[in-house]
Computed example of a mutant assay.
Amino acid sequence: MNQVEERLAQPFYLKMMGLNARAEIDELWDDLVVAGRSAGLAEVTQLLRPGHWRPLVMGAWFSLKFDRDQVGDALTEAVSSCQGSLTAPPLAVATATILGPDASAPLMTYATSETGQMDGSGAFVAAVVESVDPARASLVLEDRDLEAAAEMLGLARRLRDAWFSS
């Protein structure tokens, strides 16, 4: 593990992976916001590189600190190499928050992929797409996925607002 991962991923990834942020973010809030303020663009894009899932989880969350021209391509690439339910929710909400409707195509590619279908994360990702581009969400969605997506997107906006307001 390198220094960037020790500082930005290690303290947070277990509580921010998958859908865990829904229950855990308030406990981490102050430390997460402070860490995000210190996270540079090069560090966040390093975390977003394909590889191990732990840095990828936090790269997705910390990417919310930046604009689409800074992290949009890295997020899209990370979605295309997403390996399942530990990384898919944070990647989906970050990508949708930053790219808006432009996130729909890569997210739906993941949602309908074998990985997305096999581990169930595809339905959550499609629910995220439903929120930013309803015409593109082509899966039948359950209320639990729509509710989880709405809550996670709210957390993403809350983090983004905290970093942009400071």
Rank of each mutant, 00 (worst) to 15 (best):
A123F: 13
V128P: 04
A92N: 05
P101E: 15
G122C: 08
P90I: 10
G51E: 14
R68D: 15
V93C: 01
V93S: 01
D133S: 12
Y110T: 12
W61I: 02
P89H: 12
L48V: 05
A127C: 10
G100H: 01
L107V: 12
Q46R: 13
S63P: 04
S113K: 08
A126V: 11
T109M: 00
G59W: 09
F124E: 11
S104D: 02
A78I: 10
A60M: 07
T45Y: 02
A60K: 03
F66N: 11
V79S: 07
D102Q: 12
Q70A: 13
T97R: 12
P55F: 14
T109P: 01
S63T: 11
D73H: 03
P55C: 14
L107S: 10
D73T: 13
D67N: 14
P90K: 03
G84C: 08
S104A: 15
A127K: 10
T45A: 01
Y110N: 09
H52P: 02
L91A: 09
A92T: 08
L56W: 02
A88N: 11
M58W: 05
L64K: 08
L91M: 09
T109Y: 00
V71A: 00
D133I: 00
D133A: 13
Q117V: 12
A78R: 01
S121Q: 08
E130N: 09
T97H: 08
L47R: 09
S81G: 13
A88L: 14
H52L: 12
Q46H: 13
R49E: 14
D73W: 02
Y110D: 09
L86E: 10
P89D: 11
T115R: 13
L91Y: 06
